[in-house]
Computed example of a mutant assay.
Amino acid sequence: MRGEAANRVTFVRWPAERDLREQCTVHRRPCLLVVEHGAPPPENVGLHEDWVRPPIAPEDLQARVRQLTARTFLRSRPVLDPAGILYFKESSVTLSVTQCEMLAPLVGRHGQTVYRIELRDILERSGASSSSNALDLHVMRLRRRLRVVGLAVRNVRGRGFVLEPT
């Protein structure tokens, strides 16, 4: 069962392949630990790993692999929850209502340009000043808040902004 699965999940015999598990942890690769007969399961299981004990039904194994892949994928893209918390990788930051409203299109189109006019419209709907200077001030404050989670709002000259990892 060792090696790469179709979904890029590495299967590791536990505890015999501790070194392979450590490599997966360092490189943040998804890892499914297959606990050997009679061995205790690992005490601490990280974000990018899960464990099973054989024998396991094929559909159960596929479900574990899908869940592990989804969990890892979600952490590679920013996620903005309705409570105003932005999650990215292992970090999170709380944002104001206006910051959330401005960030929503940037998160939704992560890595793509969001035009200035779209963000100015958001400011106008929220009742804040929507002047060019006001937008720049809001973006500056948003940049400060996002620094802690490893994200940056970059200028796309003459067009708008893009949300990217730092």
Rank of each mutant, 00 (worst) to 15 (best):
V45G: 06
V45R: 05
G46N: 11
G46Q: 11
L47Y: 07
L47Q: 12
H48F: 14
E49Q: 15
E49V: 07
D50A: 15
D50K: 04
R53M: 12
R53C: 13
P54R: 14
P54Y: 12
P54N: 15
P55E: 08
I56F: 01
A57I: 00
A57M: 04
A57P: 02
A57S: 09
E59S: 14
E59L: 12
E59H: 12
E59D: 15
L61H: 01
L61F: 13
L61N: 03
L61S: 06
L61D: 02
Q62G: 06
R64I: 00
R64K: 12
R64D: 01
V65E: 01
V65Y: 00
V65G: 00
R66N: 13
Q67K: 07
T69K: 02
T69E: 09
T69R: 05
A70D: 06
A70Y: 05
A70P: 00
T72D: 03
T72R: 03
F73S: 03
F73N: 02
L74D: 08
R75H: 14
R75V: 02
R75N: 03
S76F: 03
R77Q: 10
R77Y: 13
P78T: 05
P78G: 09
V79G: 05
V79N: 08
L80P: 02
L80R: 07
D81K: 08
D81H: 09
P82N: 13
P82T: 08
A83S: 15
A83P: 01
G84W: 07
G84A: 10
G84I: 04
G84H: 06
I85F: 13
I85N: 11
I85D: 08
Y87R: 13
Y87E: 03
Y87D: 02
F88R: 00
K89W: 05
K89Y: 08
K89L: 12
E90K: 10
E90H: 10
S91C: 09
S92G: 09
V93H: 03
T94G: 11
T94P: 04
L95D: 07
S96H: 09
S96C: 07
V97H: 14
V97R: 15
T98P: 02
T98Q: 11
C100P: 04
E101P: 00
E101Y: 06
E101F: 05
M102T: 04
L103E: 02
